[in-house]
């Protein structure tokens, strides 16, 4: 089980969190102006890196807030986490 550093509450066990996928994917401002390829890329294509991954978690059984974290997908070690809207340390 992962020990996840919530930027609001500190390190807490994984069971308190839900995973919310890759970070920094924002919904296109004007979906109607996108081609089918661009829309499919937004919906479905993911970086899925073997190494450092910027991802979102939600501390659902804690403060309830979303945040961003950087984790190595080979070792599952967290590098750091940061609040939405802030830039990573």
């Amino acid at each position: 089980m992962l020990l996840i550093p919530c930027p609001y509450c500190g390190p807490r066990p994984e069971l308190e969190f839900t995973y919310a996928g890759e970070a920094n994917i924002s919904r296109p401002a004007e979906p109607e102006s996108l081609s089918d390829e661009q829309w499919a890329a937004y919906l479905y294509q993911r970086t899925n890196p073997r190494g450092m991954h910027a991802e979102r978690w939600r501390h659902v059984h804690g403060c309830g807030r979303y945040f961003n974290a950087s984790r190595d997908t080979l070792s599952d070690q967290f590098q750091f986490s940061w609040k939405p809207g802030e830039s990573p340390p």
């Binding site: 089980m1 992962l2 994984e14 839900t18 995973y19 899925n48 991954h53 997908t73 080979l74 599952d76």
Partner: peptide, 13 residues
């Protein structure tokens, strides 16, 4: 597991 990983091991829970 809930999160993407290449670690070839899963969580005990």
């Amino acid at each position: 597991d809930a999160y993407i990983s290449y670690s070839q091991r899963g969580a005990l829970h």
